[in-house]
Every structure is written in C-alpha cells, then in structure tokens.
Amino acid sequence: TEVDLHLGDITIKLKDVSEEIVKRAKELFKNGWSAEFVKKWIEEAVK
C-alpha cells in the first residue's frame, strides 16, 4: 500500500509502511520534529 504523509508543506510518499509507523511519524512531526527528521526516522523504522 502507498500512503502520502503530509508534513507541513512537505509530502512524503510511503510504500509498505504500517499504520503504526504513519501514526508515530505524525506524532513526531506534531511534537516539533522537522519533516526531514521524520523522513529519516521512517526510513530507519522500515529497515
């Protein structure tokens, strides 16, 4: 499945990412993480 994760003005296309990771990524962004950091976190999380 593909998900578009909207973080501010940046959209990250996610492939084969669990709902849990998407939820967590949104929380991290809301908590002040930059979109770049969230993207890196996701990449690490799906390895």
Rank of each mutant, 00 (worst) to 15 (best):
E2D: 12
D4R: 05
R24Y: 11
K15C: 10
K13V: 13
E36P: 05
S18Q: 06
V17G: 02
V38Q: 00
K47E: 10
V46T: 11
E44Q: 07
V46I: 14
V3R: 07
G32C: 04
V38G: 00
G32H: 03
T11F: 08
G8K: 04
V17S: 02
K23W: 10
E2W: 15
I21Q: 03
L28H: 06
K39G: 07
V17F: 04
K23Q: 13
K30R: 13
I12F: 04
V38F: 01
K47N: 12
W41S: 00
K30M: 15
E2L: 11
D4P: 05
F29P: 00
E36F: 05
D4M: 14
I42E: 00
T11G: 05
H6R: 11
K26V: 15
L14W: 04
G8D: 06
V17D: 01
W33Y: 13
L28M: 14
T11W: 09
A45K: 08
S18N: 11
K30I: 10
V38L: 06
T11I: 15
G8R: 03
E19H: 10
K23P: 00
T11Q: 05
A45S: 08
K30T: 13
F37Q: 15
L14C: 09
H6V: 15
F37H: 15
V3Y: 14
E20Q: 09
L5A: 01
N31G: 11
K26W: 12
E44R: 05
E36A: 11
V38K: 00
N31K: 11
K23H: 11
V38R: 00
E2G: 09
W41R: 00
V22C: 01
T11H: 09
D16S: 04
D16M: 04
D16Q: 06
L28V: 01
W33A: 15
V22R: 05
V46W: 05
I10S: 06
A35L: 09
A45C: 06
A35N: 03
E43I: 11
V22F: 06
E19N: 10
K47P: 04
H6M: 12
L5G: 02
N31P: 01
L14S: 01
E43H: 07
E36V: 08
L5R: 02
S34F: 05
E44S: 05
L28R: 02
L7C: 05
I10A: 07
E20K: 07
R24M: 14
D16Y: 08
V46Y: 05
E20A: 11
H6Y: 09
L5D: 02
V17H: 03
E36G: 08
K23A: 14
W41A: 01
A35F: 08
I21G: 00
R24Q: 14
K13A: 13
F37E: 15
W33I: 07
G32E: 01
E19V: 10
E20R: 09
W33F: 14
H6N: 09
D9P: 10
E20V: 09
W41V: 01
W41M: 03
L7P: 01
S18H: 08
S18F: 05
H6C: 08
L5W: 05
K23M: 12
W33N: 09
V3N: 08
V46F: 05
I12L: 13
K47V: 13
K30D: 15
T11N: 05
V17K: 02
K13Y: 12
I42L: 11
T11P: 04
V17E: 01
K30C: 04
L5H: 02
V3M: 12
T1C: 13
F37K: 14
G32V: 01
K26G: 07
K30L: 14
K30P: 01
E44T: 06
G32A: 02
K39W: 08
W41I: 02
H6E: 14
A45M: 15
G8L: 04
V17W: 04
L7W: 06
A25M: 03
K23F: 11
K30N: 14
L7Q: 01
K26C: 07
K40H: 11
K30W: 08
F29S: 02
K40W: 14
K39N: 05
A35G: 08
R24V: 08
T1H: 13
N31I: 10
V22H: 04
N31H: 11
W33L: 12
G8E: 05
L5N: 03
E27S: 05
K39I: 15
E44N: 08
D9M: 12
V3S: 08
L7M: 07
D4E: 15
K13Q: 08
F37S: 15
D16R: 04
K47F: 08
K23R: 12
L5E: 03
H6T: 15
G8F: 04
F37R: 15
V46N: 06
D9K: 07
I21T: 05
S34Y: 03
K47G: 12
G8Q: 03
K30Q: 15
H6F: 10
G8M: 03
I42N: 00
A45Q: 15
E27Y: 09
W41D: 00
W41F: 10
S18K: 09
D9S: 09
K39A: 12
G32W: 02
K13N: 11
K47C: 06
K13C: 15
W33Q: 11
W33M: 14
K40T: 14
F29T: 02
A25G: 04
V3K: 07
A35Y: 06
A25N: 00
V17C: 04
F29K: 01
K26M: 15
T1S: 13
F29N: 01
D9V: 07
H6S: 10
E43R: 05
L5T: 02
V46S: 10
R24T: 13
I42A: 03
K40F: 09
F29I: 07
V17A: 06
E43N: 07
S18D: 13
E36K: 05
L14K: 01
E19A: 10
V38E: 00
D9F: 06
K26I: 15
E27H: 08
D4F: 13
F29Y: 14
W41P: 00
K26Y: 15
K39F: 10
K15G: 09
E44A: 07
K47Y: 07
I12D: 05
E27G: 03
D16I: 03
E20T: 10
L7A: 02
L5M: 06
L28E: 01
A45I: 10
D16C: 07
K40M: 12
I21N: 02
E27M: 09
D16N: 12
K39S: 12
V38C: 07
T1E: 14
D16P: 02
L28I: 04
A45E: 14
K15Y: 14
K47I: 13
F29W: 10
K40D: 13
D4N: 13
G32P: 01
I42T: 02
I42D: 00
E44D: 12
E27K: 06
T1Q: 14
E27Q: 12
